[in-house]
Amino acid sequence: MAKVSAPTRDRLLEAAGKLFYAEGLRAVSMDDIAEAAGVTKRTLYYHFRSKDDLIAAWLETRDQPNLAAFRRWFSRAEGDVADRIQAIFDNLARAARRRTWKGCGFLRASVELVNLPGHPAIIAARAHKKRVEDWICSELLRAGIPGDTRAIAAQIILLLDGAFAVVLLHRDPVYFENAGKAAAVLIRSC
């Protein structure tokens, strides 16, 4: 029986995602993506009007899986909300110890496209980060954390995204662990 391949759009997104994550957005050409997906450039442009649209679509495919991972790590952790938030950082530290880890695709896209604030990928990245912040805020509210939970969630996002940057810079996952401890202290100080 012949193997059924994934739909073309999915193959394109998968190939583009692997290349974008490994090499960076600007380093990857549409030719590279078409070749990796086993399609012609014409087929690629049939599914995506531009590289910009493809980049944004790839980031949008990462939104829910990334948020689901955070939720899973949070829900599997024991302890109070501070311990559970800290568990997200600890799991990120574990992930960062893999040789293939290259940081947060959303943040890397924002760096590569810093001069293009209206770029579809920047909009997708901003939306993802907002969803993560909203989810953290909802968990803080659910746990009955007093005070301005929106501000606390924003501070946790600063710790999270700052840790992504510093871990990528130094290649030292301990920064995730330290940021997680700081997030737990922040929550417990409320």
Rank of each mutant, 00 (worst) to 15 (best):
A182Y: 05
A96T: 13
S29D: 00
R108I: 03
E14K: 14
K130N: 09
F164R: 12
R72Q: 06
T8H: 00
D52E: 07
L169P: 01
F20T: 02
D83E: 14
F20N: 02
A27D: 11
A2H: 13
G103H: 09
A154D: 13
G147W: 05
K181Y: 03
E14A: 12
A56Y: 08
P117V: 12
A69T: 05
Q155E: 11
L158K: 13
A27I: 07
D80P: 05
V39P: 00
K3R: 13
D148E: 08
R131C: 14
T8P: 00
A165T: 04
D134T: 04
P146N: 12
G17S: 13
D148F: 12
R98V: 01
R188G: 04
D52K: 00
I145E: 01
N178D: 12
E78T: 13
V81G: 14
R126T: 12
K3A: 11
A37L: 03
F48Q: 12
A34S: 10
R26A: 15
L12R: 00
F164W: 14
A36E: 10
G162V: 01
H170Y: 06
G24I: 06
D63E: 11
I123V: 15
Q155F: 09
I156D: 02
F89P: 00
A121H: 04
A68D: 08
A27F: 05
A2T: 15
L169H: 07
K129R: 15
E177P: 09
E133W: 10
A163C: 02
E139H: 07
V174E: 12
G17P: 14
G17H: 11
L158D: 14
L169R: 02
S189D: 11
P7N: 06
A153K: 09
G147P: 03
V166E: 03
A143H: 10
V132A: 04
D53K: 15
D83P: 07
A127Q: 14
A179T: 01
K3Y: 02
I136E: 06
T149I: 00
G147I: 02
A163M: 01
S189H: 05
L12E: 01
N66H: 11
N91P: 04
G79W: 12
R98F: 03
R94E: 01
D83S: 06
R76N: 14
L186R: 03
L141H: 09
R72W: 14
L158W: 15
I157Q: 11
N66Y: 11
E177V: 10
A57W: 07
G105L: 15
V185S: 15
A87C: 06
G79D: 10
R26H: 05
M1L: 10
L59T: 06
W73N: 03
A127R: 13
L25W: 03
Y45E: 04
R142K: 10
E60V: 12
K51C: 09
C190M: 04
Y46I: 06
E23L: 02
I145Q: 02
L116F: 11
D148T: 15
F164Q: 15
R49A: 08
G103S: 08
G118Q: 05
V39W: 00
E139G: 11
A109D: 12
A182T: 13
S75K: 13
I145M: 00
A143P: 15
Q155R: 10
D52R: 09
F20D: 04
Q155V: 07
A36K: 01
G38C: 00
V111R: 12
D161Y: 09
L186G: 06
A2M: 15
A68E: 03
R76T: 08
